[in-house]
């Protein structure tokens, strides 16, 4: 009995016209079309391309692309340079992201506390580097690190910022320099959105600023911190501009230094099928990592 009622209801609902259909189409269609063309189709095409292999008849035969299944992916899994580059950006991320977000949180809390005067100036000064595009920031710091061109020659001639041992951390410094102020601003603006009444009770009870920050402010801005963390993780796995620029300053950065650099190098060989396979694996890994992080932290932060 109940199923027939539901059927009737479903049929009725299907027949009910969606109001403002035309307006909805006008609003949604342009974005949906472009999103399909420049997000979904390229990804689908890259997946297809990654399954093609080039075959020749004999050594000098015509090369032609044939379906090779997952053979490129087997090659990706076996590729030493690929895993080295992944390990490198993971190491980079594990150190750089917490340092950067820690600093951003510290500055945001200081700006929000009564301890600091001139907060407008500090806000602008710390945010200014964000206006410098990654490539240009890398060029600037490349000069600053260089043993011959740097204004800090006594230091840069002693410490090899561009040496194989340190170059990864020199890049971490460039990324931190650009993005701390931006992340600070996201956290700071969500601190400003907290109604002050919430701290009043704690203040009257004699809680110190540090205690208020730790027990009240940080838990309340957790969603903002999670957002910044996700964007930072995505950014780390995608590192390209900084290593690519540093290659002109030092030989310590190989052409397979980060996954994206490896994708670029492989595609200019040109071995587009293998490059496509790297790209697909990288996009998938980025997606899974940030999605997992989102789910895990949400569970911890909001339950």
């Amino acid at each position: 009995m109940s199923t027939t009622v539901l059927d009737v209801q479903a049929r009725n609902r299907a027949r009910v016209k969606v109001p403002h259909k035309k307006a909805i189409a006008i609003f949604v269609a342009p974005f949906a079309t472009l999103f399909t063309l420049f997000y979904l189709i390229p990804i689908g095409y890259a997946v297809w391309q990654s399954m093609l292999v080039i075959e020749r008849e004999g050594t000098y035969g015509e090369p032609r692309e044939v379906f090779g299944g997952l053979s490129q992916y087997a090659q990706v899994m076996d590729s030493g340079p690929f895993w080295e580059s992944v390990g490198r950006v993971l190491l980079f991320g594990v150190v750089q992201v917490p340092v950067m977000l820690g600093l951003a949180l510290l500055f945001a809390l200081l700006l929000d506390s009564p301890l600091v005067k001139g907060r407008r100036f500090f806000r602008l000064a710390f945010f200014a580097p964000y206006a410098v595009p990654g490539v240009i920031a890398a060029i600037m710091w490349g000069f600053l690190y260089s043993p011959n061109l740097s204004p800090f020659k006594p230091l840069t001639q002693e410490v090899g910022f561009l040496s194989a041992d340190l170059v990864l951390w020199s890049m971490a410094n460039v990324v931190t320099w650009v993005y701390v102020g931006y992340n600070m601003l996201i956290i700071y603006s969500s601190l400003l959105a907290i109604p002050t009444e919430i701290y009043e009770a704690a203040r009257l009870d004699g809680a110190s600023q540090a205690r208020i920050a730790w027990a009240i402010k940080i838990p309340l801005v957790m969603p903002a911190i999670i957002l910044t963390a996700i964007f930072s993780i995505i950014g780390t796995l995608q590192l390209l501009a900084e290593p690519q620029v540093f290659r002109t300053f030092t030989s310590a950065v190989s052409s397979t230094f980060t996954p994206n650099l490896l994708v670029y190098t492989t595609s200019s060989v040109p071995n587009v099928s293998l490059a496509a396979a790297y790209s697909v694996v990288l996009a998938l890994a980025t997606f899974i990592l940030s999605f997992t992080f989102l789910k895990v932290t949400q569970r911890k932060a909001f339950q």
Binding site: F38, I43, Q238, L240, S267, A276, T286
Partner: peptide, 17 residues
């Protein structure tokens, strides 16, 4: 889902297309 796939990851697929 698209938010979690960064623009740089799409560069090569777009180039192929």
């Amino acid at each position: 889902g698209g938010v979690l796939v960064p623009a740089t990851a799409l560069a090569l697929p777009l180039f192929l297309l």
